[in-house]
Amino acid sequence: MSTDSPHLTLTIDSLAFGGEGIARDNGRVVFVPFTAPGDVVEVRITEAKKTFARGEVVQVVTPGPDRAAAPCPYYGPKRCGGCQYQHLTYEAELKAKAGHVAEALTRIGKLTLAAGTIEPIVPSPQPYGYRNRITVHRSENGKGDKIGFHRAESHDIIDIPHCLIAAPEVNDALGALRRQELAPKRGRAVNFTRPTHFSLRHPDLPPSAFHQVNLFLLGPLRDLVAGWVGTGRRLVEGYCGGGFFTEVLAPHFASITAIEFDSRSLRDARRKTLINVAWIEGSVEECLGAALAASGAEGTDALLLDPPREGLAPGVVTAILAAEQPPRRIVYVSCNPATLARDGGKLSARYTLARVQPLDLFPRTAQVESITLWELKA
Rank of each mutant, 00 (worst) to 15 (best):
S5Q: 15
P6R: 14
T9C: 13
T9W: 12
A23L: 01
R28V: 11
P33F: 05
P33E: 03
E42G: 10
A48T: 09
T51Y: 14
F52A: 10
V60M: 09
R67F: 03
Y74L: 09
G76E: 01
R79P: 09
G81C: 04
Q84S: 15
T89A: 07
Y90K: 09
E103D: 15
I108C: 05
L111T: 01
L113G: 07
G116R: 02
I118G: 06
E119S: 14
P123V: 00
I134W: 11
V136Q: 02
H137V: 12
S139P: 08
G144Y: 04
R151K: 15
I157G: 09
D159R: 00
L164P: 06
I165F: 07
A166S: 07
A167D: 10
P168M: 09
A173I: 08
L177V: 06
R178A: 06
Q180A: 14
E181R: 12
P184I: 08
R186D: 14
R194T: 09
F198D: 02
L205V: 07
L205R: 05
A209F: 03
L221P: 05
R222N: 12
D223H: 10
S263F: 13
R264K: 13
S265R: 05
R267S: 15
R271D: 13
G282V: 03
V284H: 06
C287R: 15
A291V: 07
A294R: 11
D301N: 01
P308V: 07
P308E: 05
E310H: 10
P327E: 06
Y332D: 02
C335Q: 02
G344T: 00
L361A: 05
P363Q: 00
T365D: 01
V368S: 00
E369A: 03
T372M: 00
